[in-house]
Design a protein around this nucleic acid. Structure first.
Lengths: 195, 195, 195, 195
DNA sequence: TATGAATGAGACTTCATTCAT
DNA sequence: CATGAATGAAGTCTCATTCAT
């Protein structure tokens, strides 16, 4: 009765709880980004979010759940953005599509390294990657096929792989390197046009 | 500047010479790749390399030094490869350059995730990145300017940033995705030609 | 001497009266029996008795007090039963006495392991044992001397010690072992007769 | 390779280790006896045996293993004692048998409450009870049938149950109560004779 | 008064590192 | 030098208890 439920973050029931959870997630994102999954400590996450360690565990019964919550949060936002692009995809020019994708990544920047760390790097979460990362890939493929109707499924998959990687670069650019983002757009435009 | 840290592996000059050390580095690479820096344990590295824990510590006085040795090892190999490309760079066509760069990455594949983990992800090693990562960047810039003489320094830096990122994708490709590597070459060719 | 500890359950006089308290005591008995004193958690006791944790603490200001209340409850019942035997003790035959004692234990069975755990095992409550356990012993001695007038005090004490232990076995018998209870009666009859 | 082995106490390889393990087991016995399984802390066991906590965990990878080692130790000694009785069982008189059994318990006294706590009380170890406790029971049954050849299996089982319980009393006797042990012998003699 | 969120001491356990043999 | 036992700081997580609502 109290042990057999799947381990999930507790949904806070009071108003205060929501603020607390938001603070925790933000701190966790920072710490995970800085130290990686193993390097991050629950103690530090608690301290940075000014949460008592016991309270942290009330909401996220263990470190893995916290990481997953972060990932889920991220995916949710990404899917939202991709959804917006998908709606406008039909009839977009190659350049417009390239711009839209780079722009969406740009807006994801705040979440920059968490993706990297939690969706793409960690072993324990690897299985979820099929779930989360795969979901993103699928959306991207669908967008590509809508905007570039001449693509077949295999071609779109291949293109999605490269596009995803290329676009990811914009998250790693320092303020002084923003010009590189323009190159990314140019390259994508060429890629979308040529194929 | 970034050399001569107080703690260094024993007899770094003939590191490759010592069989034990080679075994340790190989085991360390595996374990770091699988578990990340924090997740990796000295005990497991010792076990996998069939080295007594005490002996491991004779060669590498702590975990960080071991990771740095690995990184140095990696950089050494990369510089070697890049050096070979640099020698042939003059007069290379854009396509030939693209192919050479992708090919060199291909051959680095075994070291794939160690780069990722130690050069790019870890916080404690971040500072070194300036040293190691920066070194690679400098070489790449030089290669680009040699092969593409019309580039100015700023343009080459910008191009190096994107090229480095794009080329990195080939390390993450599964056997079934090798076709994507061809796209990378095509894109680089276009990139090198157009600019 | 052992009364009036500074911390006591609220309104102990009409403890049975309060429905909530009855539910808590029942749940506590179960949980203590299953998990032991340290293993039992206030949270689980609260949950099983459908009491908010805050309310649980209103009635029993800490875990120890709850355990003591349980023990006191148990002793109360036992004294009641022993009292009934004591009344009929004069003139009882050895066999009748043996049967009465085994029978009383039989009826205590529901409380079986709580005795064990709280009166006999726990260190912190050990001191109270002098109070509670000693009380039971005294009653038993008095019963023995009434039914077996030839006993002197020392002999009765000695006999009480063994009788108490022997009789305790019936609480541990599984349904399939009820025949052993008959042996206990036979042994006690012999014991009471011979001495 | 390092995780898939059953969890067992590490056999110390050096001389020092054996002393350490002995000290740990002794401390553990004390602490478990005083506080019970949940109440006992690894920290206290380490402190009382003057062992660093890390060393304690080297030998006993967790609390449960430590408790089991203790239980196994106990069972070994008991079986030894029972074995000695079994050898002499044929032809023993009822009184001699009673005396032997009480005597063997007497000599087990040092281990007194650990039995109680680990073999008979704890939930997690309950399964083992079938193994360990059941083993003892089986030996006792065999001894009874040898010394009292007229018993059938069912009768011996029943008798073993009561005998085991009765004999256990001698472990709880304080120095001033030794006379009770004589009563136990008398009762057992009667029990063995009459049946 | 009832509720359950918040708190933090402390338990178990791991592992980098040291050091006696 | 090699070995692996010893050490203890630090991390994860639990739970008795308090307190704001």
């Amino acid at each position: 009765m109290s042990t057999a439920s799947p381990v999930t973050p507790l949904a806070p029931k009071r108003r205060r709880g929501h603020l607390r959870v938001a603070a925790i997630l933000e701190a966790a994102e920072q710490v995970f980004a800085e130290k990686g999954f193993e390097g991050a400590t629950m103690t530090e996450i608690a301290a940075r979010s000014k949460t008592a360690i016991g309270s942290l565990y009330r909401f996220f019964p263990n470190k893995e759940v916290l990481a997953e919550a972060l990932a889920a949060d991220y995916v949710e936002k990404v899917l939202e953005s991709l959804g917006a692009i998908a709606e406008k995809a039909r009839g977009m020019s190659a350049r417009q599509l390239a711009e839209a994708l780079v722009d969406y990544r740009m807006r994801m920047k705040e979440h920059r390294r968490v993706v990297f760390l939690l969706l793409e790097a960690r072993g324990g979460l690897r299985e979820k990657r099929g779930g989360l990362g795969g979901l993103l890939r699928a959306h991207l493929i669908s967008i590509l096929r809508t905007a570039l109707p001449h693509l077949d499924q295999a071609g779109a998959e291949r293109m999605a792989r490269l596009t995803e990687h290329l676009v990811r670069l914009v998250n790693e650019l320092s303020p002084g390197e923003q010009a590189v983002a323009d190159d990314v757009i140019d390259l994508l435009e060429f890629y979308f046009t040529k194929r």
